[in-house]
Computed example of a mutant assay.
Amino acid sequence: MRTPLSPLLALVLIALASGCRRPAGSNAEDAGTRAAPEMSPRDTVTVKGSDTMVILVQRWAELFMKAHPEAKLQVTGGGSGTGIAALINGTTDLAMSSRTMKDAEARQVHQRDPQGPVELIVARDGVTFYVRADNPVDSLSLAQLKAIYLGDLENWKDVGGRDAPIIVYSRENSSGTYSFVKDEVLGGEDFTERALTLPGTAAVVHAVSLEKNGIGYGGGAFARGVKELKVRKEPQGEPIAPTAENVRSGAYPLSRALYFYLPRPATGVEKAFIDYALSSEGQQIVTQTGYFPVK
């Protein structure tokens, strides 16, 4: 679990984030379909970071640029840590992250620009564990997931499956999803050396779909052609599926927020894009792409 932000940085994040959001009670326009916002000409706005969020943010950008041809956005992945590092060194305008910014990272952004960082929750997600569709195991407890990813459980028969070795897939350490699983499932301990590290969630899903004894993890939006495991908080507890209702309510134990981070309050194209992402139309796209809306 991360250390809480210092009072100064916490105030900066809260005050600035509220300044970037639409005023309460206003009918902010759906930027993809209504009157064009004020946007001064500028170079391409770069958006970099979380591989989990790439599908969603690329869709937002595609529709936003279709409605506003004068706006240019470039969206690339690389992992939450990569996006935040790019924000710190000034090589991206906006970072996507599937984890909260660490205190040290926030201080570096703040040193570069006293008005930042600005944190915005733009969608929600449930980290899911995938197995191949023909795997007889339908659910695992948090304790079993921890034991598998620490290397203490190595055979499916130990969790009610077939007598076969568990092939463990993981993400690279720059991934926000990697950090989330390490903190929330492994309690901060290191992944087993047996884990096969892959460069993106799509790669994990593909590997699991081919390996009948595999297990991997990632965002729910990527779960195509694989089975999502239900998760039990306690060894004998109720298996909870990563459904929209369970993620929004927090009943699913691995629910999380997805973030935009900026070095300063958004203006121009950046603000118009963020307003669109948080608009009713933008949040409908959240649902259509397999994530869960903020509201």
Score class of each variant (00 low, 15 high):
213 N>R: 10
28 A>Y: 12
178 Y>E: 09
137 V>P: 03
113 D>F: 05
142 L>E: 09
275 D>H: 01
254 L>E: 02
14 I>F: 11
77 G>D: 10
238 E>F: 07
238 E>A: 14
250 G>H: 00
131 V>L: 01
20 C>P: 06
142 L>S: 05
214 G>T: 02
82 T>S: 14
89 N>T: 15
58 Q>Y: 04
185 V>P: 05
69 P>C: 08
223 A>M: 03
154 E>S: 14
52 T>Q: 08
283 Q>R: 01
210 L>A: 11
280 S>V: 09
98 S>V: 06
53 M>P: 05
268 G>N: 10
32 G>F: 05
127 V>R: 04
182 K>A: 04
184 E>A: 11
220 G>H: 05
77 G>V: 07
292 F>T: 13
97 S>N: 05
20 C>V: 12
237 G>P: 11
172 E>S: 11
69 P>E: 02
141 S>I: 09
281 E>P: 00
163 D>V: 04
82 T>P: 03
177 T>M: 01
36 A>W: 08
180 F>Y: 10
224 R>I: 14
169 Y>W: 06
113 D>E: 10
56 L>V: 06
192 T>N: 00
12 V>A: 04
193 E>D: 14
44 T>W: 05
48 K>D: 08
262 L>G: 02
174 S>Q: 12
259 Y>P: 04
272 A>K: 03
76 T>D: 02
272 A>D: 02
128 T>K: 01
215 I>G: 04
286 V>K: 06
65 M>G: 07
272 A>H: 01
282 G>M: 10
266 A>K: 02
46 T>V: 08
82 T>D: 11
174 S>R: 12
230 K>F: 09
177 T>R: 03
72 K>Q: 12
41 P>H: 04
24 A>N: 07
74 Q>S: 15
277 A>W: 06
167 I>K: 13
89 N>Q: 15
95 A>D: 11
178 Y>V: 02
200 G>Y: 07
84 I>N: 01
4 P>W: 08
221 A>R: 00
179 S>Q: 10
7 P>N: 04
224 R>Q: 13
238 E>G: 11
107 R>Y: 13
209 S>N: 04
197 T>F: 09
281 E>Q: 12
78 G>P: 02
263 P>E: 13
295 K>F: 11
162 R>Y: 01
210 L>Q: 14
100 T>R: 15
10 A>T: 12
133 A>N: 14
67 A>G: 09
259 Y>E: 00
124 R>G: 05
290 G>E: 03
123 A>T: 10
290 G>D: 04
113 D>W: 08
197 T>W: 02
147 A>S: 06
193 E>P: 06
87 L>Q: 06
40 S>G: 12
102 K>F: 13
221 A>D: 11
220 G>L: 00
276 Y>V: 06
248 R>D: 11
132 R>A: 06
261 Y>V: 00
264 R>I: 00
239 P>I: 01
9 L>D: 02
84 I>Q: 00
79 G>I: 04
110 H>G: 10
92 T>I: 10
28 A>T: 09
5 L>K: 06
